[in-house]
Design a protein around this nucleic acid. Structure first.
Lengths: 332, 332
DNA sequence: ATGAAAGCGCTAACAG
DNA sequence: CTGTTAGCGCTTTCAT
């Protein structure tokens, strides 16, 4: 049998409430405290989080929902969130949603049954009704690298518009005018695309909507889309990918067609993952201050969970262009 | 207030035990059942997993311990484990341990307090005492891509020795005789190294222990070690990295020294991650049937959790060499 | 087929 | 400072 608070109490010759009090750092006589502590050691006692949570305490567990844990960028985020959460004694239940609204709903519902203390919706979360329910029910929620301005929830984000603007401007300054975009069905991609459009307009260039493609998250689909884009009558000389994984898919596709990068085609990524450094050629991409973002996210959420802060914040972090070898002057 | 079993019972005009019975698919009169089901809908009732677990039922949660979620290969595993677990209605609490025995212990201890139903120790887990405790206390444990033969636990693994043997043989067949190895402090690396030694012995080559380096998991350290290896008097013409991340670190380091890969130096990876396809040059590496491994792992663990199977298995999966562009004939 | 009641391990008044 | 007791929400005998 697992050892319970009763076992400890009995062996220490005190009542269970005394034991409970030493666990919760409440006023207890020195002698009793020593004794209890000692017995807890001896019995290798581990208080049940279940039982204590049932009485209204926290489970010290956060639900982390993200599109796909297998995506290296997402995994990097998860790891950083995890580290910070651990510092506060919280653990993470992680669910990949594949951007699928039903999965999103199921996961949240399941985690609520398991009484997680709060949620971090990271990178992209589509099902707004689910967010609305969470907000209605006063469940702490934080949006990380995702934004839904209609909800009054804590959120922390890079300025994707600026990021999209930065890559587009960079390409334009290299002489490119026919620039395709490949993104995902997510707010962040949408915003990056908006930044791109802004840059185009400022430079007096026309945006061609049919040079903008939206991929599901599979590498295969992205490659197919890339090939289609490259076969477009207004053959683009550059492709902006809305994340590094897409960029790499684009590189592979372009190479299959026999294109040299960056000579024949410039490609940019987004996120500055490990991938972008090690691929061939190394990617021009956009760096976000992931580390701080994730740490802040956890801090904010835990503050809300512990009721230490009642006001919500929306934090915007500015991104930074990292120029590597995948972009070059337009040869056209 | 959250709606409880009492609310449902009251509104349905039955007792809580009847409600409980319909939730657990026990014998209940048709009429009552219909009524209860309807009320549950109306009230949007979600039974508390905490409460039910407190009475001895499962939490339907698995603890997944791994060295580093930010490692793409590990993340890929996690994702596959997650998918399979979800199929059974289980969720995953994920903890990165950084191969640090104290973290390993803390994480396991924390998760036990949270009453996870079982553990998957994936990729590498060093603290044997922790495993021993788990086994002693009859907590379901499964070793995935890691082995500790001294424990009678379910495990599923690729045959690392064969994998190491395969890359080494490949390099030997290309004429290399001075082959360095860079691994991590993990069983899998150790076994891969053993395979390498075996291949050497069979070819009548001598193994030089000082050409074998063990890196902590940081990219920086791996790079430093690579440079040291390359400065060795018996300058190696090939490097076997025990995983793709290490291989990429080695590539970067070699390139800094001005070496061309694979002309001056052949490098092999291990795991066949996305990284290995997209890096420059694409890596010769070893593929494991990750998908099936992870699914089987979950199946096995859940069987044990549900007490459906009492016997333990040790499954070995055979790896497969994938030859790409990072290896070439020895020029020496 | 249904309900009353005990109990899972812990917390939180409330008394003493 | 310490112990008694009543729950938290659910499962499970055991009666009815």
């Amino acid at each position: 049998m697992k050892t319970t608070i009763y076992d400890v109490a009995e062996k220490a010759g005190v009542s269970i409430s005394t034991v409970s009090k030493v666990m919760n750092d409440q006023q207890v006589g020195k002698k009793s405290k020593q004794k209890v502590l000692k017995v807890m050691q001896e019995l290798n006692y581990r208080p049940s989080v279940l039982a204590s949570a049932l009485t209204g305490k926290r489970t010290s567990t956060i639900g982390l929902l993200l599109p796909d844990l297998a995506n290296p960028f997402v995994a990097e985020m998860a790891r950083r969130v995890e580290d910070r959460a651990h510092e506060f004694g919280f653990s993470l239940v992680i669910c990949s949603t594949d951007l699928n609204p039903e999965k999103e709903e199921r996961s949240v519902s399941l985690l609520r049954q398991k009484s997680v203390d709060g949620f971090i919706l990271a990178s992209a979360f589509n099902n707004r009704r689910v967010i609305a329910d969470l907000v209605d029910d006063n469940v702490p929620v934080l949006l990380l690298s995702e934004s839904h301005p209609q909800f009054a929830v804590n959120s922390i984000n890079i300025d994707n518009i600026v990021g999209g603007y930065q890559v587009a401007s960079h390409l334009v300054s290299l002489g490119h005018t026919r620039i395709a975009v490949i993104g995902e069905d997510a707010t962040s991609s949408q915003q990056r695309i908006n930044g791109y459009k802004q840059a185009f307009q400022e430079s007096g260039l026309t945006v061609h909507e049919d040079l903008i493609a939206i991929s599901d998250s599979s590498v295969e689909h992205a490659q197919r889309l890339t090939k289609e884009l490259l076969n477009h009558p207004k053959k683009p000389t550059a492709i902006i990918a809305c994340n590094d994984v897409l960029a790499i898919a684009a590189i592979l596709a372009a190479r299959e067609i026999g294109l040299d990068i960056p000579k024949d085609l410039s490609i940019t990524g987004f996120d500055n993952t490990l991938l972008s450094k090690s691929c061939d050629p190394p990617l021009t991409t956009v760096e976000q201050g992931l580390d701080k973002m994730c740490a802040q996210a956890v801090d904010l959420l835990i503050e809300e969970i512990e009721g230490k802060s009642t006001s919500k914040q929306r934090i915007l972090v500015l991104p930074q262009l990292v120029i590597r070898k995948s972009t070059a002057f337009c040869q056209d």
